[in-house]
């Protein structure tokens, strides 16, 4: 790397050039091809400042700080995301890499980019809407999951109306997009325990009525993934209130008992991990107890033959033995 590289552009110059190019791309006039080229070129310049290249280290903190400041002042992050579908294939990924690096910037304990995005929540909403568009969905996904790491940003996303669109995104026919959306969805619902528990408590009815649809989805992968996540959510001690509410509803028990008998072994297995919570509950409401009692013998017999080939999975076998014992010992509530 030469000491005096020829005309090394300053952060302000690169950001300005990129902004002009994106604007030109947005206008879509005759010079679109040239604009595309300029967008790609300047994105690579910014990316190299942040990440370095095989023969150059990343730029110094001062340069990166200047660059970040220019990005905030010019509102370029939002502009890039709004025009992501117009940027070429490799350029889209460069936008995501630049965004993710800038997002992680720290000054002491402060995260200036996170603070900046809190004042510009359109950035988050535009990214979430990205799942509507095949050609940018995965790029938006990588940026969203990076944002979800920050509680302040996760909160904005969880409490926005757009959050409920995820129940649709995780079921789209394109597998890569659906499963990417599911990763983001899961991240939002599990990353920040207290925030998530609070959100689920406040929005219990809305969330679980939507969630029910995922559990009944036609799409095998959606059904399996959402069932697994349900198990994780219920077994997380932060979600105790939510869990108690969920296992008091007989409809939920019926659904799980039916899923225990699904054709797919993986679904049976995941259903077992939700079903066990109903049985293990020391204060079973009467409707729950009644269902279990009505099926007492069938359940004992069913569980005895359930996944007997998992002999290596000690925890599973202990849990299964415990459930069988519990169900055998069930007695009707004594009337007072």
């Amino acid at each position: 790397m030469p000491l005096f590289g020829k005309s090394q552009k300053s952060p302000a110059e690169v950001v300005k050039a990129l902004k002009e190019a994106v604007n030109a791309l947005e206008r879509g006039d005759k010079k679109a091809e040239k604009a595309q080229e300029d967008v790609s070129k300047n994105l690579v310049l910014i990316k190299n400042m942040l990440y370095g290249t095989s023969d150059a280290e990343p730029q110094t903190d001062i340069i990166v700080a200047q660059l970040a400041q220019e990005l905030y002042n010019s509102n370029l992050l939002l502009l890039l995301i709004q025009n992501l579908n117009r940027i070429d294939f490799e350029g889209k990924k460069d936008v995501a890499q630049v965004f993710n690096n800038i997002l992680r910037r720290q000054i002491g304990t402060r995260s200036p980019t996170v603070e900046y995005i809190c004042t510009k929540p359109e950035i988050l909403f535009t990214l979430m809407a990205g799942y509507e568009h095949q050609e940018i969905a995965l790029n938006c996904g990588t940026m969203l999951r990076e944002c979800a790491r920050y509680e302040a940003l996760a909160k904005i996303m969880l409490y926005s109306d757009d959050f409920f669109n995820f129940f649709r995104y995780v079921e789209v026919s394109t597998f890569d997009i659906a499963s990417d959306a599911f990763s983001t969805f899961k991240e939002l619902l599990t990353r920040h325990k207290i925030l998530c528990a609070e959100f689920l408590e406040i929005n219990y009815d809305k969330v679980f009525s939507h969630y029910q649809r995922l559990l009944n989805s036609e799409n095998y992968v959606t059904r399996r993934q959402s069932l697994k996540l349900l198990g994780e959510l219920l077994l997380d001690r932060h979600n105790f209130t939510v869990m108690t509410r969920y296992i008091s509803n007989p409809d939920n028990l019926k659904l799980m008992m039916n899923m225990l008998k699904e054709k797919s072994r993986n679904i049976q297995f995941e259903a077992f991990h939700v079903f066990k919570v109903f049985v293990a509950n020391p204060n079973k409401p009467k409707p729950i107890l009644d269902i279990l009692l009505r099926n007492q013998e069938k359940l004992v017999e069913f569980l005895t033959r359930f996944h007997t080939d998992r002999s290596e999975d000690e925890q599973f076998n202990d849990e299964k033995a415990y459930l069988i014992k519990q169900i055998k010992e069930l007695k009707p509530l004594t009337e007072h």
Partner: peptide, 28 residues
């Protein structure tokens, strides 16, 4: 899942592309 998402984000004549990926029954 990782393979499909990654492959969909690469474009090079010498890297096998996936044109589409979807779920059908218990299969991807």
């Amino acid at each position: 899942q990782h393979e499909i998402i990654l492959t969909r984000q690469l474009q090079h004549p010498n890297v096998l592309p996936y044109y589409a990926a979807f779920v059908s029954g218990p299969e991807v």
